[in-house]
Design a protein around this nucleic acid. Structure first.
Length: 611
RNA sequence: GCUGCUGUGGCUCAGUCGGUAGAGCACUUCCUUGGUAAGGAAGAGGUCAUGGGUUCAAUUCCCAUCAGCAGCUCCA
């Protein structure tokens, strides 16, 4: 390896940005190869940054500005050019220049964005140090005639970058800042061996099949219509899932000290002014009415309504924690490009609750919440990672309500709770809600990378202040409660999207919209089949009866595509014995004949809810 | 919202180098009564997203709008 920075190299970390070290080097190097190939085809290209990424899939991209619009049809050509560079097998050579030398080098090459990086003018989300600029020292890597500003590390030579694939092209903002111009971004993947590349490509293909939008359409769970863009029409089977989750959560919470409320959708502007939504969340509010004093808005959150309920009585310290659960319908006017199937829509519904606590109750409450999250996600086998989102008062004081002191208190309380529950977590500055810091629980995306925010626990010292909430303490003095905003599923819509993608539509027995499908062999067996179907229904099993005039193999194929957990085949043989022939989704090659009543008993047992 | 791409029967997709369209699945009817992932036949179904423009003629070319997709930005 021609990496002269021996000290640094010796202490190579196990992984960088969640990617194993060696793979990181390969991805980064392949990004250079891609950029070099782009420059050969379109010499006017001006490069910005091209890092390895862990999300939405493990790969790399390179952001670049060039006159030619790169389309999908250009990718094969570009890949050919990359293959040539790989064949040339030139080493990646690291050099350290002074700032002045580097500026001279990139100025001559016409790489203006690299100059911005060196001179720290990039701004946005880009950090110069990550690109190889540290003090007066500027690190560059050269491979053949291609030189790039880069901190490294890299593989030893372009010959290592043989197994790659370019995936797509899209737009991105210069320096990741939406106020800047749009440039082009090329995505790719790379692996050390052909087999690994093949496996990853297969994963990308199967991801399309797991996509909740496709499964939602195929299994008739939900649909969308242009007449109400960005919203969801829940079909009977999707509604079944929705209601089961809703009911299950309701029971879980009611047995954990919550009470449930129902609150209006529409409120006067004055409420939103009081809550701070008018100031900090205005662009997401759907509003009605022209004259200022008559303006009303659809709620984007339930919290202000719950503040009103809390404030409606004089509260004692003995009542706390007061936990108000609300499955109210929320509306948020999202950016059009942000809506995605049911995962993000204009209208949704959280398994929301606001918990009013005394300061001495915060940590315990959060601990028990973490327990509930673990219980629910464990039941589905969905993994999560935690992120502590905090405020950034230094750079964006305008984004937060209240005072810095309040925020620091809230943030350290959350950090302590995470510590106490031994939850590993990342800290994300500048990502807090406008009223308080939060712990988000992130679940895997379709590639298995942690991406989707579902459960959330948010601490709020601001709304109690704004709504002037008080309780009477044991010493008969008035005190201010703290509010915990929390959701376990997050939203039903988003959680269902995750379940669909996690299970690929093979819902667990208790959640499957159709649990059992009874198929008749021929017309003779219809009366017996109907009898079995009725018994199932009477036992509370969600069953369907397929007595159509079709061959059994055809009906089995259909039921299999619908991913029904149990298929019961009934013919003359079964009718005679009072049995059913059971075909299980999880072991389709093994069919088992058993007494109809025995199967019903087993199905009822398995259909019991799991948390 | 921004950049790029897409929009043909319910679904998946052909096609028309400008002369108003086709398949498979699904649907209806008939034949078939068949034992573990597609039996056969016939039929019905589309003003080719919408609105303009160019043209003798537009589903096809151009523009706009709407909707969707890949990202960016943002979030439950």
């Amino acid at each position: 390896m021609s990496r002269p920075e021996s000290a640094a190299a010796a202490a190579a970390p196990a992984e960088i940005k969640g990617i194993p070290y060696d793979h990181y080097c390969l991805l980064h190097s392949t990004a250079h190869v891609m950029a070099a190939a782009v420059r050969r085809l379109w010499p006017d290209v001006k490069l910005t940054v091209g890092p390895p990424i862990a999300r939405p899939f493990r790969g790399f991209y390179y952001d670049m500005d060039l006159a030619h619009r790169i389309g999908p049809e250009d990718l094969p050509r570009l890949e050919k050019e990359m293959e040539k560079i790989v064949k040339e097998n030139v080493p990646f050579v690291r050099k350290v220049l002074s700032k002045q030398e580097a500026i001279e080098l990139f100025r001559q090459a016409g790489q203006v964005y690299k100059l911005d990086l060196i001179e720290a003018k990039a701004g946005g989300s880009v950090e110069a140090a990550a690109e190889g600029v540290e003090g007066d020292a500027v690190t560059i890597y050269q491979s053949g005639d291609f030189i790039d500003l880069c901190k490294g590390p890299h593989v030893d030579s372009t010959g290592r970058c043989r197994h790659f694939k370019l995936l797509n092209v899209s737009g991105s903002y210069l320096w990741g800042d939406s106020r800047n111009q749009q440039i082009q971004r090329l995505y790719g993947i790379a692996w050390p061996t052909k087999e690994e590349l093949k496996r990853d490509l297969a994963r990308h293909e199967s991801a399309v099949e797991r996509d909740h939008r496709k499964i939602g359409r195929d299994l008739k769970l939900f649909q969308h219509h242009p007449e109400s863009p960005g919203t969801i029409f829940w079909l009977p089977k999707g509604t079944m899932i929705y209601n089961l989750l809703s009911e299950k959560m309701r029971r879980l919470l009611l047995s954990n000290g919550y009470v449930e409320v129902r609150t209006p959708l529409l409120y006067n502007k004055s409420l939103w002014v009081t809550s701070g939504h008018w100031e900090k969340f205005r662009d997401k509010l759907f509003t009605f009415g022209e004259e200022d004093d008559q303006v009303a808005g659809l709620k984007p959150m339930n919290c202000p309504a719950h503040m009103l309920i809390y404030r409606s009585e004089r509260r004692s310290y003995r009542e706390l924690p007061l936990r108000l659960h609300d499955q109210g319908v929320l509306h948020r006017k999202e950016d059009r490009g942000a809506i995605e199937g049911i995962r993000r829509s204009f209208q949704f519904c959280q398994d929301d609750a606001h918990i009013f606590v005394r300061p001495d109750q915060v940590e315990e409450e959060i601990t028990s919440l973490i327990g509930l999250v673990r219980r629910v996600y464990g039941a589905f086998g969905i993994e999560f990672r935690c992120v502590l989102s905090v405020s950034d008062w230094t750079n964006h004081p305008e984004r937060w309500l209240g005072t810095r002191e309040m925020w620091e208190k809230a943030e350290s309380a959350l950090a302590r709770a995470l510590e106490r529950n031994r939850l590993e977590h990342k800290i994300d500055p500048n990502e807090a809600a406008f009223y308080g810091p939060k712990i988000d629980f992130i679940t895997p995306n379709i590639f298995g990378e942690f991406e989707h925010q579902c459960a959330t626990i948010q601490l709020d010292f601001n709304l109690p202040e704004r709504f002037n909430l008080i309780y009477v303490d044991s010493d008969n003095t008035e005190k201010r409660p703290i509010v915990v905003h929390r959701a376990i599923y997050g939203s039903f819509e988003r959680f269902i999207a995750s379940i669909i993608e996690h299970t690929a539509g093979k819902f667990p027995m208790w959640l499957a919209p159709v649990q059992v499908k009874v198929l008749t062999i021929s017309a003779i067996s219809v009366p017996y089949g109907r009898e079995v179907y009725r018994k199932l229904a009477a036992a509370g099993i969600r069953a369907e009866f397929d007595d159509r005039d079709d061959k059994i193999s055809f009906k089995i194929r259909n039921a299999s595509i619908e991913k029904v957990p149990y298929i019961l085949v009934v013919g003359a043989k079964e009718a005679e014995k009072g049995s059913v022939n059971v075909r299980c989704r999880e072991a389709q090659d093994k069919q088992e004949e058993m007494a109809a009543d025995a199967f019903i008993k087993k199905a009822v047992e398995e259909a019991k809810m799991e948390f």
